[in-house]
């Protein structure tokens, strides 16, 4: 420990002395989320909702696509971010039961950057762009809902009709879906 403290003192020559301690410090996860939120570009098709505005680690994102097969729908996702963010990815789930090849009936989302391709350098905007893309380009080769993926692969027009039925709260192949059309 020889000299460490004198090195420290040299390092901080022009830093002011610190005031009172013992107060809670803003956590690394909060700092990062705060930064990510300030860089969010939501456009006109997305909005956020914070059930508790003091808790920025838990919020909802509503996506209302204005083009593509899911146009007119209003999809609500929950974001749960833990204190280990950005080492851990955010946990994202769709709160409604929807007909989509990459989202299962429980709301799990198959998006690579939410699991295998997550890196701490990615931000919330990347996740939001990814989710938005799922509604523009549902992907049949990466299915989470196998029936929907088969449907999309085999008969694109039929799939489109089934999506419209599901969005309106109808049933598709014996499974009934939630009405998620924008009010």
């Amino acid at each position: 420990m020889l000299k460490i403290w004198s090195m420290k003192q040299k390092q901080q020559q022009d830093e002011a002395a610190s005031a009172g301690t013992k107060k809670k410090k803003v956590t690394a996860a909060q700092l990062r989320v705060q930064k990510d939120l300030s860089e969010l570009s939501l456009g006109s098709t997305m909005k956020t909702n914070f059930p508790n505005p003091d808790d920025i680690l838990n919020f909802e994102l509503t996506i209302e696509p204005d083009e593509g097969m899911y146009r007119g729908g209003s999809f609500v996702f929950t974001f749960k971010i833990n204190q280990n963010f950005p080492h851990d990815p955010p946990k994202v789930k769709c709160t409604q039961k929807i007909y989509h090849p990459n989202i299962d009936l429980e709301g799990n989302v198959c998006l690579n950057i939410l699991r295998e391709d997550w890196k701490p350098v990615l931000n919330l905007n990347a996740v939001i762009v990814g989710l938005q893309f799922l509604f523009l380009e549902p992907n049949a080769s990466d299915p989470l809902n196998k029936e929907a993926a088969e449907d999309l692969k085999v008969n694109r027009e039929g799939f489109k009709r089934n999506v419209r039925t599901a969005l309106g709260g109808g049933s598709v192949k014996g499974e009934s879906y939630e009405r998620v059309l924008k009010k």
């Binding site: 410090k25 956590t27 939120l37 300030s38 969010l40 909005k47 914070f50 505005p53 920025i56």
Partner: peptide, 22 residues
């Protein structure tokens, strides 16, 4: 500027819903 403490969101410039709430 956007500002918070550990416990509270004091003022957020964005996203719009949080701006409104703070």
């Amino acid at each position: 500027p956007t500002i918070r403490t550990e416990a509270k969101s004091l003022y957020y410039q964005s996203p719009p819903s949080l701006e409104e709430q703070t």
